[in-house]
């Protein structure tokens, strides 16, 4: 697979959209799920992934280590997520109830988990999604976030604790 990555990256650097799409096919589900955990709704998540893909495609020549494609595009996605989260702060026109309604309108069964994750703070959401969805270890997340591994472990531990609390509370509220 590493070789496949390498070949595809080389082709993508020459503007081959199909080659890039092949690279993308191995990571896009994780990208979307990470975005979904960190943003308010599926549209914003899809927008963040689309924007990240465009940036990645236009700047893939800057990717030095061809086998680090996934970490590289995840990092680009993180900047898109953070930008969107900043927009949320300055644009509070979307009422929280509206957000919840949107979530409920989703047909999938994992809605409760996403609502519970949405109640975590930004850093916790990011660390949790990178760990659980992306499968990254604490030291890898630390590199992605320019932070310390111990800090990430602490945030991850706290996020899981809070998530479990909220799920228990939700179960109790039914």
């Amino acid at each position: 697979m590493n070789n496949d990555f390498s070949v595809c990256v080389k082709r993508a650097r020459n503007g081959d959209a199909d080659a890039f799409a092949e690279l993308y096919s191995s990571v896009y589900k994780d990208l979307y799920r990470i975005a979904l955990c960190n943003l308010r709704n599926s549209d914003d998540a899809a927008d963040a992934v689309s924007d990240a893909v465009l940036d990645a495609f236009t700047s893939i020549k800057k990717l030095k280590d061809e086998n680090a494609f996934k970490a590289w595009i995840v990092k680009i996605l993180m900047t898109k997520i953070k930008r969107k989260q900043k927009d949320y702060i300055t644009d509070n026109t979307q009422d929280i109830s509206e957000v919840e309604q949107e979530s409920r309108d989703n047909s999938f069964d994992g809605v409760e988990i996403l609502e519970a994750i949405s109640e975590l703070d930004e850093n916790e959401r990011l660390v949790l999604s990178l760990s659980i969805v992306g499968g990254y270890k604490s030291d890898e997340i630390a590199k992605l976030c320019n932070s310390k591994a111990a800090t990430i472990r602490s945030q991850l531990s706290r996020a899981k604790l809070k998530l479990r609390d909220r799920l228990i509370a939700e179960q109790e509220g039914r």
Partner: peptide
Amino acid sequence: LIEEAEIPERLSPENIAVML
């Protein structure tokens, strides 16, 4: 549970290739 979320069609690799 997170994986139960459906991936929007516009993010499929085929559609992304078209967009690019």
